[in-house]
């Protein structure tokens, strides 16, 4: 049996693929920015925040880390309308990705914060820094430096996981591959191309984050 591959038939749909890449990237960037901001705050709450706040944060982290992403997405998209909150596919996807990355990275960053020796906090306090300055300038940067490789991996997992968002008709890359495959009957080629693009995106994002971390997040 010989397989005849016809990539051109698939690439003919390049505007759709491009839209898919754009949505995948947009959702990922949003998840990185909002999800990381959220998780730094939540990690702080868990390590040195008030107890009344630490408990709900712990519950959120456990809930999100112990349920499938697709269930979380369906809950937001199909479940919340029952409560009167109707969200567009893109918005539901964005919220699901932010919350998912937020939960995992809260746990990752929390571990990093706990690893910063107490003596550094004490040295900073005795230099008359405010509690906020101690956290942002002394405790957080080395913590982020320590856990950055884990965070980058988690971000890649979330980017790849965004493929599931096609299930609620978010026009991300996997959704584009689905549609093209249905229209052209070139299923194999459609997914080969999607695979290659995901691979390229993952490598690109990893490189970008490895570059950006020391410069933007934890550089001196």
């Amino acid at each position: 049996m010989t397989v005849q591959l016809d990539f051109l038939a698939v690439l003919h749909y390049w505007p759709m693929l491009l839209t898919g890449v754009a949505w995948t990237l947009a959702l990922t960037v949003l998840a990185i920015v909002v999800g990381l901001a959220l998780s730094v705050t939540f990690a702080w709450v868990r390590v040195e925040g008030p107890r009344w706040a630490a408990i709900p944060v712990a519950a959120y982290v456990e809930l999100l880390r112990n349920t499938p992403f697709i269930v979380q997405l369906y809950f937001i998209f199909f479940g919340l309308p029952e409560l009167g909150l109707r969200l567009s596919p893109v918005l539901a996807s964005a919220i699901a990705l932010v919350l998912n990355l937020g939960a995992y990275s809260t746990e990752i960053i929390r571990a990093g914060l706990s690893a910063t020796p107490k003596g550094q906090t004490e040295a900073a306090l005795s230099l008359a820094l405010t509690r906020y300055q101690v956290f942002t300038r002394v405790v957080l940067p080395p913590a982020m430096q320590k856990v950055w490789p884990s965070l980058v991996s988690q971000i890649i997992i979330v980017m790849l996981g965004s493929a599931v968002c096609g299930q609620i008709a978010t026009e991300e890359l996997n959704y584009a591959a689905n549609v093209i495959s249905a229209n052209t009957f070139h299923t194999f080629e459609s997914y080969i191309i999607a695979t290659v693009i995901y691979l390229a995106l993952a490598i690109l994002i990893r490189r970008l984050l490895n570059w950006a971390g020391p410069r933007l997040i934890f550089g001196g």
Binding site: A124, P142, G220
Partner: peptide, 23 residues
């Protein structure tokens, strides 16, 4: 302190400059 407690992510110079700049 006994254990020095320098800030490991900052150069020597920036360790010294941090508090005067911020405070």
């Amino acid at each position: 302190f006994q254990s020095f407690n320098l800030f490991p992510h900052l150069s020597v110079g920036r360790n010294i400059m941090l508090a005067p700049s911020l405070v």
